[in-house]
Amino acid sequence: MHPSASVEAVCRSGSHTFSKTSVTEIELLAGLGVADDAHAGVTVRHRSRVAQDPRQPNLRQVHLIHAELLGDLRAREFRVGPGDLGENVTTRGLDLLGLPRGALLYLGDTAVVEVTGLRNPCAQIEGFQPGLLAAVLGRDEQGNLIRRAGVMGVVRLGGVVRPGDPIRVDLPEEPHQRLERV
């Protein structure tokens, strides 16, 4: 389906910073997320979600963004690179936004991430660079909001993920469910 899909970069941050640091590898922990990342955990870790209800399940353990978005933003004069928008995994050659909920992403030798939904970009992105929030949002022909800032997922099987690792996609049974914000 996506024969040339691969991991371009991996990033993490041990504190609640907007951007994450590119590293040579990350370890995904089943049911938790990225080892040594502030958003790892069984229950929600994003501050706004914790304020609503700290017992919510963490459907945002891993954030993935397609490198093609970063290239598009750079072409529009934004200064962005891997990890700058807070993602853990930067992919290439994979239509992340077109995946259905429940799609399984096989990253490297053993790690499996289940796609749970779309990242909803928050006001922090505007603080990172003015105009960036509008640049990662759009509207379709019907006027519906399109979120382009990547997808979120949960770790089903752990493993080490490195730049250059292949990505294989396993789609859930039909009918497929569109991604909604999580």
Score class of each variant (00 low, 15 high):
residue 142 Q to T: 11
residue 21 T to K: 14
residue 103 A to T: 12
residue 161 V to T: 06
residue 179 L to H: 03
residue 96 L to M: 05
residue 31 G to N: 08
residue 164 G to R: 13
residue 21 T to P: 04
residue 45 R to G: 05
residue 161 V to M: 02
residue 122 C to N: 07
residue 69 L to E: 02
residue 159 G to A: 08
residue 92 R to C: 11
residue 16 H to V: 05
residue 142 Q to C: 15
residue 14 G to C: 10
residue 176 H to W: 11
residue 115 V to D: 03
residue 49 R to A: 12
residue 29 L to A: 10
residue 177 Q to P: 00
residue 165 D to N: 14
residue 137 L to T: 12
residue 4 S to E: 13
residue 3 P to K: 13
residue 148 R to I: 05
residue 156 R to I: 14
residue 57 P to C: 04
residue 19 S to W: 03
residue 84 D to K: 12
residue 106 Y to L: 15
residue 55 R to P: 04
residue 121 P to Q: 06
residue 136 V to I: 02
residue 85 L to Y: 02
residue 182 V to M: 12
residue 132 L to H: 06
residue 127 G to M: 09
residue 62 V to R: 03
residue 144 N to V: 12
residue 15 S to F: 12
residue 173 E to T: 10
residue 36 D to Q: 11
residue 48 S to K: 09
residue 145 L to K: 06
residue 123 A to L: 13
residue 67 A to I: 08
residue 21 T to H: 15
residue 136 V to N: 03
residue 63 H to Y: 10
residue 58 N to W: 00
residue 86 G to R: 01
residue 122 C to R: 05
residue 29 L to F: 12
residue 51 A to E: 14
residue 155 V to H: 10
residue 83 G to L: 03
residue 40 A to M: 10
residue 82 P to I: 07
residue 67 A to H: 15
residue 20 K to N: 02
residue 161 V to Y: 06
residue 26 I to P: 03
residue 119 R to H: 13
residue 25 E to A: 10
residue 19 S to R: 07
residue 134 A to N: 13
residue 133 L to Q: 12
residue 121 P to A: 05
residue 28 L to G: 00
residue 88 N to T: 03
residue 109 D to W: 01
residue 115 V to L: 01
residue 106 Y to M: 08
residue 125 I to H: 12
residue 72 D to E: 15
residue 7 V to I: 12
residue 159 G to D: 09
residue 47 R to T: 11
residue 70 L to Y: 00
residue 118 L to G: 00
residue 91 T to C: 08
residue 80 V to N: 02
residue 77 E to Q: 12
residue 105 L to R: 01
residue 79 R to Y: 11
residue 43 T to N: 12
residue 119 R to A: 04
residue 166 P to E: 09
residue 89 V to P: 10
residue 64 L to E: 05
residue 173 E to C: 09
residue 39 H to M: 09
residue 91 T to L: 04
residue 105 L to S: 03
residue 6 S to N: 13
residue 52 Q to V: 10
residue 2 H to V: 15
residue 13 S to Q: 08
residue 1 M to E: 14
residue 7 V to M: 06
residue 123 A to Y: 15
residue 6 S to G: 13
residue 129 Q to I: 09
residue 9 A to W: 04
residue 37 D to C: 03
residue 126 E to G: 11
residue 76 R to E: 12
residue 157 L to T: 14
residue 1 M to F: 15
residue 2 H to P: 10
residue 100 P to S: 13
residue 57 P to K: 00
residue 19 S to T: 02
residue 10 V to F: 03
residue 63 H to F: 06
residue 16 H to P: 12
residue 28 L to V: 01
residue 99 L to F: 09
residue 164 G to Q: 08
